[in-house]
Design a binder for these strands. Structure first.
Lengths: 337, 337
DNA sequence: CTGTTAGCGCATTCAA
DNA sequence: TTGAATGCGCTAACAG
């Protein structure tokens, strides 16, 4: 970039002192109208752009909030990003988004980068960061975490965790209530806390209703569509009595759905299907998919507000994210049979 | 944030001068091993984090590339974001992503913000920015644009535009080739260049094959699922001879698909359906949706490399994005009828 | 209301 | 190999 115009150049052009220009720029003090006009003209003429670095260095504030997301292209976390943007809007703070690609080392690197950029607060979406990293972070600045059960209260940090286990349990209970007795499960990767909790919830529900937990009814996926397809194929082998499948996320449920279609099995008449996460597309699958919805956007927005409130020393009303069973058309009743 | 540790404090702690610490940090010069160890120890002990602002101010470089996306939660553009991340990886540059929410004023504001942050290059995804803004930008720094046909060659900028019109034409031609004669279209918002071009392509194909363009066969949507559903319902009224519909994007095609399902119409037996964009989910719809794929991730990656090459004064091999018809199972042949 | 002065934290001369 | 001095562009006292 060709050397950028500086504030002093503007000052010289307008025939005033640098501080005057600064004051006009920031509205820090009343300034003679005529001079103000001169300055605006000079700014226009020279194409002046204030240098954030210099300003931040001088003020000691960056006006930015770091956001760490595991994947910039994840339909799941992106709703939260939208929420964060909304929450920050008009606050004078802007988000700096970095993705950690589900890798601890990259995430730690990303956090370091954000710290270098002197973000004043941080929002962490899911991810693999060890708890002690999060604690260390919360001790330095306001931190909001989404999707992990961790107690940051000691430092005043906050975590919005969804109760995956309870929701999975509700979902499977719903299936049982509709008369299903042999229920398969396509699980997520076992190194993923959410996946483990959803599996636990599945097991809880079975146990609670006196149904046997059969490991053969559980196949492992990786949260991607293709693994749902394969998982369903495997479940179908040798489980002719299975009437419903709880898939650990919607993406895999889409794959499972396709596997059934390929085999000429109807949903929900021949097989009931439930997912998890309620992706935007899940209202438009065929049939619309029963799933559990986490208010990602609202959570993101609240977290942004939380960090802002901490920064301003204000109080903020607590937020209880409610997970919601989205009952749609992918589950049939087995009562009559 | 509690006052951060500075380089001088590290220097004092280690008993050396600030310049020495700086040299160790940047590997600018050989330094006595013993001192280097001292310094590393001090950095560790104090929890020192270099201040990006100060460094950028001193060096006059920011090490960041601005990325403007119309929507942080768009499944379409996010693939490009992933590609950009990949393209920048290991280059020493990192992306700063801002979204403009499809609004010209917000986009201009975002660009200003990026300029303030002294990004060294910029990548613009789609959006509503007027051409002259883009030209002005390209005159200042390396710029890569995705999804808009604009000639930035004068300044050395580049634009990777997809030929929406040609692809739409190919798609509709394909339908005609499969024996369809009455083909509906659910279009995108008319203020959206992509939408207009896709409509044009639809018209081109009909004309080319001697079919009449019937305005009643075109209904307007807004690129969202729900408008596809409504659009399909409206198309179905009074067009009993329609056998195929070209939907201007996949999201709307999902909605259209659901409308058909609700009415008990089968795809593709009763109605053929084609979309546009080939979202990740489109391989898993029921049936898998025929669509046209733009290599968004590859384009994003190449654009990142392009900007880097400009920054380094290197040459880069040109990139011809190829759009690809993804022929899947949502189209039936009408030949025999 | 306005100009002058003194840093903010760092990289980079220039000497030693 | 190392330290001292200087300046990047801006804001914030401090005087006037």
């Amino acid at each position: 970039m060709n050397r950028a115009v500086t504030l002093s150049e503007v000052a010289r052009e307008a025939g005033v002192s640098p501080s005057t220009v600064s004051r006009i720029l920031n509205g820090t003090a009343r300034v003679n109208d005529a001079k103000a006009r001169q300055v605006r003209l000079a700014i226009e003429k020279l194409g002046y752009t204030p240098n954030t670095f210099a300003r931040s260095l001088a003020t000691g504030t960056s006006g930015s909030i770091g956001v760490l997301t595991p994947d910039i292209a994840s339909p799941f976390y992106n709703d939260a990003l939208s929420g964060i943007e909304r929450g920050l809007m008009g606050s004078g703070y802007s988000p700096i988004i970095i993705s950690g690609h589900w890798r601890t080392d990259e995430e730690e690197h990303a956090v370091a980068l954000l710290l270098n950029r002197r973000v004043e607060g941080m929002i962490i979406l899911g991810g693999q960061l060890p708890d002690h990293d999060l604690h260390a972070l919360a001790a330095r600045l306001p931190v909001g975490v989404l999707g992990r059960a961790i107690d940051l209260g000691a430092h005043g940090g906050v975590s919005l965790a969804m109760d995956n286990r309870q929701s999975a349990r509700d979902l499977v209970n719903y299936l049982i209530g509709r008369g299903h007795r042999v229920i398969g499960h396509i699980s997520g990767p076992p190194d993923h806390a959410d996946a483990r909790q959803r599996l636990d919830g599945y097991r809880d529900a079975l146990q609670e209703r006196g149904l046997r937990f059969d490991p053969a009814l559980v196949v492992q996926g990786d949260f991607q569509e293709s693994s749902g397809l394969i998982g369903m194929q495997r479940l179908l082998q040798g489980h002719s009595d299975m009437t419903a499948v709880f898939v650990a996320n919607d993406q895999m449920a889409y794959g499972a759905r396709l596997a059934l279609y390929r085999l000429g099995l109807r949903v929900p008449e021949d097989m009931s299907l439930v997912g998890f996460d309620d992706l935007p597309g899940s209202s438009y699958t065929m049939p619309p998919l029963t799933s559990v919805r986490q208010p990602m956007a609202e959570m993101g927005q609240w977290l942004a507000r939380y960090v802002l409130s901490r920064l301003r020393g204000e109080e903020i009303e607590p937020f209880e994210p409610r997970q919601e069973l989205m009952l749609r058309e992918s589950v049939a009743s087995r009562r009559g049979r």
